[in-house]
Write a protein that binds this DNA or RNA. Structure first.
Length: 884
RNA sequence: GGACGGUUAGCUCAGUUGGGAGAGCACCUGCCUUACAAGCAGGGGGUCGCAGGUUCGAGCCCUGCACCGUCCA
């Protein structure tokens, strides 16, 4: 039990509170799942951040959303598990470590595989610690006892199992195909790791001479250097222009190789000259055509993107330098006859940014069709994963419906080694979960494991179940799987979400999560994507340092709607910080008046004031509203409703009303006000806790409440006894009245401290609201003499205003400005005329009366009556004023 | 080329079965009022991108168009 102090210091210091309470939570073990086996589990697995470096503001958004959900569910009484972990991030991490090595004047090849991996593991440990510390700063309620890493022993075992089972099922194969090659990272990539960008390039038109000397055939290409690997020229079989040339031979310029002219339906006669050069080793379409026509595949580049020996005189040149050189040479030879500007799409590596080279290479692939079909069937059934917002399901489905085989081997060292071995003697391929010692075919013991590792996403695709112990049928797996909700950005739906779904369906026979909550990106204040090159990134740690974690969390979570991007504005963080401070000061006020009050002293039974009953009613509605919005993942709306309730209702009105009894002499009233204040504050803090965990704990620990921590306090529920429509009506009238008086005072330049008289003539219905709250009205309007009654006479020379159910008079001797009063009332009259006209027009419409729902019509009638009443009073006042 | 998202107050954005246009920030005026100047009180500000349609009634539903953005090919 934390020590409970009666009062708070005058200013809120986020840093101290954050450190203190995070330690307290960890010591109390509040984030550890499994302590209450009788409770229903609720599970989220964190999208594992890469161990490449620090968390960015996008992680802060993603993690805050999850923390809000998990803290809410924990308070609702679930056995809440939020499982932390990190991703080894093959290419990215290896690239970072290699860059470090370069600075140190060495390379991974000099170090050797084993030594290099030791370095990477050191790197990983270093950054894992940084990331854990950042999670702590964000206030995340993660169960650290279950932290996982994609290259843990258990997760690696899962990877092997999946690989082997897919292989045995014929869903993994090895073969020589055109893949996307990243010459900078020197590895193969999958299709989605290639970013297509529109680039202004050139289209080069060349003439290939016919061997028989009868002329030329014209071809065009954007990559002239690939001509060195051409093994044919293709035309459409029905193309009249070239019919006679099919079967003839052309001489490939520069290299002087003879290649055939072939016919293939794939060629588009409309594009360019209608004849295309075919390079089977450097273009996916040419590759397919090459297979159909048995063409040789000539690879003219090496892994670094430089021309190889097959490129003859260009050997050793970088591909782009070679392009320049070959263009020059071809021009001189008169072969290159035209260079046209041409905008086309060029693939770039998602990681290194290098231009991706379509490249013939032997790689491992996952056969996607059967897996995709399973996923599509699941999506079409009522067992499908629910996407929030829904539209992302279409995006996911479209991708999975058009999916191609997945290249999973990477020419890296950092990652899961492919569990395949090759027999040096007979060439047999052995795929196994356990390292084999001899070849099952020939018995030879000289086996060599595949050098390559798997795509990082191959292991992250197993994350929801591998982290819970799969393939073992562990207790955790049985209890917490499938998980409840996955929270992630729309940018990794294909990379990650889709892959988790189809692997889960294949290996666990169920979807990996019930719901997927998709959020957008955090952009800079101008809407640009944050990037290192622009230098417009915002470091979440800096935000926390300046404004506190609660402020940042509140800003991020309430600033967006599901699926949409959020712009980062420092002013909005500041506004959130101000909100925290508002709560802080309201709580200071409350605690000043709660000295000596204990939890058991709190009773809501006593006679309650209008304001008491009103705030309890509003609390009820707020509880319902916040809870229902959270359950729909509408965190932004939930947060804003809370903001409004706490600031504009609890602070602006309730506390102001409460000051009267709290500073007064009536002990009974004082006691009940204290109880209501303590209760409403306690409940409000609970509702706010998922959004602002630190400040709510700090304050809550000072309140007269039972319990060790707000993190495990019970989530509020609405109480039927608090429903009180009379209190709502009365309070609305009081607020309207007080505002009217303040408004007149401001308009008449009555000094704030000057006490004035006020008379209220009220209908019987509303009379009690005024009578019961005379002291409050006086206090909040600066009134020293107040008269309330059904038949109050209007004093001469007084300002007047009309409110719902009442007329108010302010005798302001010496201050009266008749003209100003008249113009104000005339403005009011104009507004009311418009309203009455609008309502009457609506009610005169037979269509509306007949077709609109009865309660809507009734409401309109009621409104119309109110407007007419009010208008009548305004008219009378004006008549009197003008008659004077 | 296909699909999706956006267009609402000066700025950033809410607006959920279609039923009297909202918030925060910014702006103007007055206040150190015994929780809070990171505050309090009062105030101004919008033909909801354009054009049609459905409906008693459209910011919301339908069609077309314009501009901005994203994804896919």
């Amino acid at each position: 039990m934390a020590e409970k102090k009666p009062t708070l210091p005058t200013a809120y210091h986020p840093k101290e509170a954050e450190e203190k309470w995070y330690d307290y939570w960890l010591e109390g073990g509040y984030f550890q799942a499994g302590k209450h086996p009788e409770r229903e589990p609720f599970t989220i697995v964190i999208p594992p951040p890469n161990v490449t470096g620090n968390l960015h503001i996008g992680h802060a958004l993603d993690n805050t959303i999850q923390d809000i959900l998990i803290r809410w569910k924990r308070m609702e009484g679930f056995d809440a598990l939020w499982l932390p972990g990190m991703d080894h991030a093959g290419i990215a991490t290896q690239a970072r470590v290699e860059a470090r090595l370069r600075e140190e004047g060495t390379t991974r090849h000099e170090l050797g595989r084993e030594k290099f991996l030791e370095k990477v593991w050191e790197w990983k440990e270093h950054y894992a610690q940084i990331i854990r510390n950042q999670w702590r700063k964000l206030g995340l309620s993660l169960d650290y006892s279950r932290e996982r890493f994609t290259m843990d022993e258990g997760l690696s075992e899962a990877v092997r199992q999946v690989f082997v089972r897919l292989y045995q099922k014929g869903l993994i194969y090895r073969g020589k195909y055109i893949i996307n090659w990243d010459p900078a990272a020197q590895t193969a990539l999958s299709d989605i790791e290639v970013i297509h960008k529109e680039v202004e390039g050139k289209l080069y038109h060349m003439l290939y001479p016919l061997k028989d000397g009868s002329g030329h055939i014209r071809v065009a290409t954007t990559r002239p250097e690939t001509m060195l690997g051409d093994t044919a020229v293709a035309v459409h079989p029905d193309d009249e222009r070239y019919r006679d040339l099919i079967g003839k031979t052309v001489i490939l310029p520069v290299v002087n190789r003879e290649i055939p002219i072939i016919a293939d339906h794939y060629v588009d006669p409309e594009f360019g000259s209608g004849a295309v050069k075919i390079t089977p080793a450097h273009d996916p379409n040419d590759f397919e055509m090459g297979l159909r026509h048995n063409l040789p595949q000539i690879l003219v580049m090496d892994e670094t993107g430089r021309m190889n020996t097959k490129a003859g005189p260009y050997k050793g040149l970088d591909r782009f330098k070679c392009r320049k050189q070959i263009v020059k040479d071809l021009q001189e030879a008169g072969v290159l006859i035209e260079i046209e500007n041409h905008t086309h799409s060029v693939g770039h590596s998602e990681r290194s940014g290098a231009v991706v080279e379509p490249y013939l290479s032997t790689q491992w692939f996952v056969r996607m069709k059967p897996l995709a079909e399973q996923a599509i069937r699941n999506a079409q059934s009522d067992q499908g994963v629910k996407f929030v917002p829904e539209r992302f399901e279409k995006i996911y489905l479209h991708w999975i419906e058009n999916i191609r085989d997945w290249c999973i081997s990477r020419q890296l060292w950092w990652g899961h080694r492919i569990p395949a071995w090759y027999c040096e003697k007979c060439g047999e391929v052995i795929v196994a979960t356990e390292n084999p010692t001899e070849c099952p075919k020939c018995g030879c013991c000289d086996l060599k494991q595949d050098e390559d590792v798997l795509d990082t996403w191959f292991s992250s695709g197993l994350w929801p179940f591998s982290t819970l112990g799969w393939p073992e049928e562990t207790e955790s797996f049985k209890r917490y799987y499938p998980t409840d909700v996955l929270v992630t950005g729309y940018d990794i739906i294909y990379f990650w979400v889709a892959r988790m779904i189809f692997t889960a369906l294949e290996f666990t026979d169920t979807k990996p999560f019930q719901d997927v909550l998709i959020h957008g990106l955090v952009r800079d204040s101008e809407g640009r994507k944050m990037s290192k090159s622009l230098g417009n990134g915002v470091d979440p740690m800096e935000v926390i340092d300046q404004y506190g974690a609660d402020a940042m969390r509140f800003m991020l979570s309430t600033g967006s709607t599901p699926g949409n991007d959020v712009r980062f504005h420092w002013e909005r963080v500041e506004a959130a910080r101000n909100f925290a401070n508002k709560i802080w000061n309201a709580s200071r006020f409350a605690l000043m008046h709660l000295e000596g009050v204990k939890a058991q002293d709190i009773s809501l039974e006593g006679p309650l004031s209008t304001a008491d009953r009103w705030i309890l009613h509003r609390l009820n509605e707020t509880v319902e509203h916040v809870t229902s919005r959270l359950s729909r993942y509408d965190l932004g709306d939930a947060g804003q409703v809370l903001y409004h309730f706490i600031w504009n209702e609890l602070c602006d009105w309730y506390i102001e009303f409460a000051k009267l009894p709290l500073y007064g002499e009536d002990e009974a009233a004082k006691q009940s006000t204290r109880s209501v204040l303590a209760y409403v504050l306690d409940q409000s803090l609970r509702l706010l806790h998922p959004f602002m965990p630190f400040i709510t704990e700090e304050i809550w620990q000072h309140l007269p409440v039972e319990g060790d921590s707000i993190t495990i306090a019970k989530w509020p529920s609405s109480r039927a006894a608090f429903a009180d429509s009379k209190a709502v009506h009365d309070m609305e009238v009081l607020i309207e009245t007080i505002r009217s008086v303040r408004n007149i005072r401001a308009e008449m330049d009555v000094p704030p401290k000057k006490q004035i008289d006020l008379l209220i003539r009220s209908d019987n219905e509303t009379l009690s609201a005024f009578q019961d709250n005379e002291a409050a009205i006086c206090r909040l309007c600066g009134v020293n003499r107040l008269q309330v009654g059904p038949s109050i006479d209007r004093p001469d020379r007084s300002m007047t205003a009309v409110v719902t159910g009442a007329e108010i008079f302010l005798p302001l001797e010496g201050l009266i400005d008749i003209d100003q009063t008249i113009s104000r009332l005339e403005g009011e009259l104009k507004k009311l005329d418009k309203e009455v006209e609008r309502v009457e027009k609506k009610l005169a419409n037979q269509g509306f009366i007949q077709k609109a729902p009865a309660h809507i019509v009734d409401e309109e009638r009621k409104k119309g009556q109110e407007y007419r009443d009010k208008r009548e009073k305004v008219r009378n006042r004006l008549k009197e004023l003008k008659g004077e």
